[in-house]
């Protein structure tokens, strides 16, 4: 539907929707961790790694294919998470959050001082291509959006399927009672490690997508406030469905854009208020409103 409507959507809306896919992917990964009771305050690490992987592909190899960029983002982020996961999978609660925060700030600290990668200014990404073709200027955004939609759909389906497997179903059990998980013969640590890598891959793809959409990357993408944004989207959406993070990201994008246009000095306040209200009144996220209504009229 989106694909068919694509040519008729105004350019600015295409931009917002594509970015919503990018951030939705990151939030989808955070949702997996949140289901196991873990909140990462450093998911920007993988978002930024994905973006820089995509950027490096163009800067050092001249490749600017959207799909190749997303693949590079996924691989780099996934590999980093696989290594760091050996460390992080032991941690729970506040300590998981703080360690992931420290790791993302390490990347920020490295990028800020790296002249080859443009230090605080970052660098521009080559114009996107798709299967070796460079679409005309009016079609570039649409091509990126279409790729984003298809990749997101496939990844969301994969996560949906994963949630139904024994490992996916282990998440709420780890959140509730890790001792019991161990005493039933499963390794909570390994399960968390797997989830952490999946979440990083999703964030890496999201970062690459954001990079090619915006056309520019900078170290801010690894700063803790970026992670805060992703947490906001995840809490807003809730853990009820794999569609929720994308809906959450779109709502966030719309709130952000309109609130920023109306009053640039109070948009954070709107976000803060929304976050507060959701934690207090809708702890299961906005998605739970749909589910409740659905449950009432089966």
């Amino acid at each position: 539907m989106l694909l068919a409507a694509g040519p008729f959507i105004p350019q600015w809306a295409i931009f917002i929707i594509t970015i919503a896919f990018a951030k939705g992917l990151v939030a989808l990964g955070l949702m997996l961790l949140l289901r196991a009771g873990l909140i990462s305050f450093g998911q920007a690490l993988y978002y930024c790694l994905g973006a820089y992987a995509a950027g490096a592909l163009g800067r050092f190899m001249g490749i600017s294919d959207v799909l190749a960029q997303m693949l590079a983002g996924a691989l780099v982020a996934g590999f980093a998470a696989f290594i760091l996961g050996f460390l992080l999978a032991k941690y729970r609660g506040i300590f998981f959050g703080l360690l992931s925060l420290a790791l993302s700030m390490i990347l920020y600290g490295l990028l800020v001082k790296n002249e080859a990668l443009g230090s605080t200014d970052g660098f521009n990404i080559l114009p996107s291509t798709l299967f070796g073709v460079r679409p005309g200027p009016e079609w570039v955004r649409y091509a990126v959006l279409a790729s984003a939609a298809i990749v997101s759909l496939l990844l969301a389906l994969a996560v949906h399927r994963y949630l139904a497997t024994p490992l996916g179903r282990l998440a709420p059990a780890i959140k509730d009672n890790e001792i019991r998980v161990e005493y039933m013969g499963a390794s909570a640590r390994r399960a968390v490690h797997v989830k952490y890598v999946i979440a990083a891959v999703l964030a890496g793809v999201g970062g690459a997508l954001a990079a090619t959409t915006v056309g520019h990357i900078d170290p801010e993408m690894a700063f803790w406030t970026t992670s805060g944004e992703f947490i906001f989207i995840t809490i807003l959406a809730g853990t009820g469905s794999v569609v929720a993070p994308f809906a959450g990201a779109l709502i966030y994008g719309v709130i952000h854009t309109t609130a920023y246009d109306l009053s640039p000095n109070t948009w954070q306040m709107s976000l803060g208020l929304a976050l507060l209200l959701i934690i207090v009144f809708l702890p299961e996220g906005l998605w739970s409103m749909f589910r409740r209504r659905y449950a009432r009229h089966p």
Partner: peptide
């Protein structure tokens, strides 16, 4: 029960 059985099946 199903969480436990999932672990058993997988193991």
């Amino acid at each position: 029960m199903m969480v436990g059985l999932g672990i058993v099946l997988r193991n």
